[in-house]
């Protein structure tokens, strides 16, 4: 309530001037604006939780975040996944402190309340009768995300019961998701556990640099392009200026860079065994892009990014096209 009173629509609109292409620095440093984002953005948007391949078996779980709320992503049955608030409805204790595991349910370490993987309260402690008739235990299942859905193996969830479907929310960026995550009938699988870092910046620094800040590539990433592939900065800059910066709608943005037409090697850096599989899975326009793709860097609003580009360390060895995702979790205005 206080935040909504403090920041009326006119003031919020003043923070970004699209025509002048400017934004107030306050949006990166103001704690009150950060709290507003937690409420309005992270409380309402579809948030990326994990990939289906991270919880392959029934009972597999990983612990993640939705905004500042810790959640448990669990495979309840072969086809049913749940995203549960990692907080006991009794007194708020954190139920699960492990990063990953497999279980038949959850037992709270505080008073021993037991929950099924679907989040159902199945047993309280042995002190039955403690609350007499004053508590309706049927209302004390684990809180869960309002909606959970997945696209191309990417699992998203939202606290917003009125959110549009995931398909509608993603909209046109599904084309780019397919390009990278749905190239073949089997899709992709993760290679292992995620890396986790903390940095002393606002969470939006990440999405901004995965949405359309192509120019930093020349200055900051020029060295690795030079050392591993012999590309000089002027050529890098020219190639970036020829690449496409794309606004997918609904706040999703990205960059797709391709080799110039009729130059270079078709499907540069990509596994030749995958080409027939891509031909049977992708649309013709997606396949045409994959034939010349150099890199795809995108962000699903608000904070789910990925980068996809060829990497090589050894002269003479063909490059490998790698795919890495990042989720920028808001901790504080100056901490992510």
């Amino acid at each position: 309530m206080y935040i909504n009173e403090q920041f009326g629509p006119a003031e919020i609109a003043s923070w970004v001037n699209v025509d002048a292409a400017t934004a107030s620095r306050r949006i990166f440093s103001d704690e009150a604006i950060f709290q507003l984002e937690i409420e309005r953005i992270f409380g309402n948007a579809w948030l990326y939780i994990g990939h289906e391949s991270e919880i392959p078996a029934v009972g597999d779980f990983v612990t993640r975040l939705m905004g500042k709320d810790p959640v448990i992503l669990v495979r309840v049955t072969e086809n049913e996944i749940a995203v549960l608030l990692n907080s006991c409805p009794h007194r708020g204790a954190m139920l699960c402190q492990a990063d990953a595991g497999n279980g038949k349910g959850l037992i709270c370490p505080y008073h021993g309340w037991a929950f099924s993987n679907a989040g159902r309260l199945v047993a309280t402690s042995t002190d039955d009768g403690l609350y007499a008739d004053r508590v309706d235990f049927r209302t004390l299942d684990l809180r869960s995300a309002a909606k959970v859905s997945s696209y191309a193996g990417l699992i998203y969830a939202t606290w917003n019961a009125d959110a549009p479907s995931l398909d509608d929310y993603l909209g046109d960026i599904r084309w780019a998701i397919d390009l990278c995550f749905n190239r073949t009938p089997g899709g992709v699988e993760v290679l292992g556990a995620p890396h986790r870092w903390e940095m002393g910046s606002n969470w939006k620094i990440g999405p901004i640099n995965f949405s359309g800040d192509g120019p930093h590539f020349t200055q900051l990433h020029g060295p690795i392009a030079k050392v591993t592939q012999g590309i000089e900065k002027p050529d890098l800059r020219a190639a970036l200026q020829a690449s496409n910066s794309i606004s997918w709608g609904n706040g999703h943005n990205g960059v797709i860079q391709m080799t110039p037409e009729d130059s270079g090697i078709a499907f540069f850096g990509q596994d030749p065994d995958l080409i027939p599989l891509m031909e049977q899975t992708l649309q013709p326009d997606q396949l045409a892009v994959r034939k010349r793709i150099l890199q795809a860097v995108n962000n699903v609003f608000p904070n789910h990014s990925w980068t996809h580009n060829p990497v090589s360390y050894t002269p003479g060895k063909p490059p490998v096209h790698f795919l890495a995702m990042r989720v920028w979790q808001p901790v504080a205005a100056n901490r992510t």
């Binding site: 391949s53 392959p56 492990a98 990953a100 595991g101 279980g103 290679l191 292992g192 556990a193 890396h195």
Partner: peptide, 11 residues
């Protein structure tokens, strides 16, 4: 109850 997936993702 360690649960590892995939080939590993070392730093």
């Amino acid at each position: 109850k360690a649960r590892h997936i995939g080939v590993g993702t070392p730093y």
